[in-house]
Amino acid sequence: MLQAIDLSKRYEDGVLALDALNIEIKEGEIFCLLGANGAGKTTTINLFLDFIQPSNGQVLINGIDASKKPLEAKKHVSYVSENVMLYGNFTARQNIDYFARLGGKTNLTKEDYYMHMREVGLQEIAFEKKLKTFSKGMRQKVGLTIAMIKDAPNILLDEPTSGLDPKAASELMQILQQLKEQGKSILMCTHDIFRAKSIADKVGIMKEGRLVMVRNRKEFLDDDLEKIYMDYMQEMVSAG
């Protein structure tokens, strides 16, 4: 379970990136966070990971305050960054092995890693190839493997589909669907309304650090999500 309670973040330069954000993502729920560039999506994720400290409010991972007990909290969360960056001189398997161990999984074998890489659809020949030869999508898959191997109950994804080809993107969606079925709480920040619609249980639209709209699946399938989104953006433009 992922929770943001009255979460605010003001950066050192005075920018209020998050303004009293409230989110709750239950087990087996995918929450898609939409919003224009600079809306505060990445800031939210960074707060969950204790990369930055909240100015106000709380971030809870399985009820544990991520800014007070970050190590404890991070045990229960996996993270796939916007642009998965790994050690270029290590092979995919070596990278996965390293991060698996960092995440406390020390008893996995090569076969386990291979299995997970097959699961995310990475080509077999890439398993023992150096990461620096990988395309962005391939890296993204390795990143996903790393997240999956940790097997944490919560997953944070920052624009995971950016740069993926349609096939890879839809494969990713399938995997997320599976993970959701396993009971994971998933927070996905994205610009991809199409994907969000296809998979989200809830969609939130962020604007200038505020969650201006939340709709559950039934609601946004009835409405035209794209139109709602555009309307909200429009407001911003006219307001700005």
């Binding site: 990971l49 204790d50 990369f51 970050p70 190590l71 404890e72 909290a73 991070k74 045990k75 969360v77 996996s78 993270y79 960054s81 642009n83 998965v84 960056m85 790994l86 050690y87 270029g88 991060f99 960092l102 995440g103 406390g104 990143g143 790393i146 940790k150």
Partner: peptide
């Protein structure tokens, strides 16, 4: 710079 620090630290290592 390589972005690996974020991933490492997200693993819950102090």
């Amino acid at each position: 710079e390589d972005g690996t620090m974020k991933l490492s630290l997200s693993k819950g290592i102090s």
